[in-house]
């Protein structure tokens, strides 16, 4: 994920300082890794360097002085361009699960047992995410983020089910290669 574009997106609502941007990022993307303060400030400095953001003064609110930033017109254009770009659909995923199934066959292991265990781990994570998104008071950002993860885990599971059903053929193919 592009931190600079996410920060530009958060700045689109108006000037803000680094601490506030970090807090809003973590609220808005609850399942993402929280942003480190250092990363926020480094990214803001790069945005200023590239003419995409500029300093909008300072405030202190009685505490230490904090620099506020705002997006420039150039920054707004850059953000709009990024938001329009289609993310490339990954046609062949370099998938660890697939690699482990093949390696397991090559090494005379038990790919079926591995798939069952992997399935159990996926289901356990799906139960956690379902509990998170159906908890009373869950906000929409949390629900959408859990939905995204659930749908991807679900796709993995469907692939694992089909693969388990095809293991005999796959084993013959790998063995004869």
């Amino acid at each position: 994920m592009s931190t600079r574009h996410i920060l530009l997106g958060l700045l689109a609502g108006g000037p803000s300082h680094g601490y506030d941007l970090k807090r809003r990022h973590d609220d808005r993307f609850p399942q993402a890794r929280p942003l480190a303060y250092g990363q926020v400030y480094t990214t803001l400095q790069r945005l200023v360097r590239d003419g995409l953001a500029e300093v909008d003064g300072t405030d202190s609110d009685g505490g230490p002085e904090r620099t506020k930033y705002r997006a420039t017109d150039e920054g707004a254009r850059e953000l709009a361009e990024w938001a329009r770009q289609i993310a490339p659909p990954a046609p062949f995923v370099a998938n660890e699960i697939f690699a482990k199934v093949v390696v397991s066959i090559l090494a005379g292991g038990d790919p079926d047992a591995y798939l069952r265990a992997q399935r159990a781990a996926h289901m356990a994570r799906m139960r956690e995410l379902t509990a998170v998104k159906t908890a009373p008071g869950a906000d929409l950002a949390t629900v959408l983020s859990a939905d995204y993860a659930l749908n991807h885990l679900d796709a993995d599971l469907r692939w694992m089910t089909t693969t388990a059903a095809r293991l005999t053929t796959l084993t013959a193919e790998v063995d004869s290669a």
Binding site: R119, R127, T130, D154
Partner: peptide, 20 residues
């Protein structure tokens, strides 16, 4: 499986028996 994830646990069936 997204519906099954609402449950406390899952039993998989295959060919008329509990598979896992």
């Amino acid at each position: 499986t997204q519906v099954a994830a609402y449950a406390d646990r899952e039993l998989r069936m295959a060919d008329g028996a509990v598979a896992g």
